[in-house]
Amino acid sequence: MSIQAETVKQVAVLARLQLDDQAVPPLVEQLSNILKLVEQLNELDTRDVVPMSHALDMPIPERPDEVVNTNCKDALLANAPDSVQGYFQVPKIIE
């Protein structure tokens, strides 16, 4: 299966990536090659194989319902590109 230029552009939009038109054809080729590689799996009969979502065979760890964190607002806001009055500030969200 090879993918089309339109698909590459759509994936870029979903991933918030800005692509020049010149960047598209090489990506079409590279991504198609990756898909071809994966397509080799289709040669196998997987009818009786249970789909696997995780390689590790372990149960999910669960923690008790306890509040253990204290206020570390300042440290976290210090990493933000912009903050005002204790809020993260971002470009206006169009509502």
Binding site: R63, E66, V67, V68, N69, N71, C72, K73, L76, L77, Q85, G86, Y87, F88
Partner: peptide, 18 residues
């Protein structure tokens, strides 16, 4: 998924962690 409080109405961003 973390030990932050869920209390409603606290001062902004005081109940968050990494």
């Amino acid at each position: 998924f973390c030990g932050c409080s869920t209390t409603f109405g606290a001062e902004a961003n005081t109940q968050i962690c990494p």
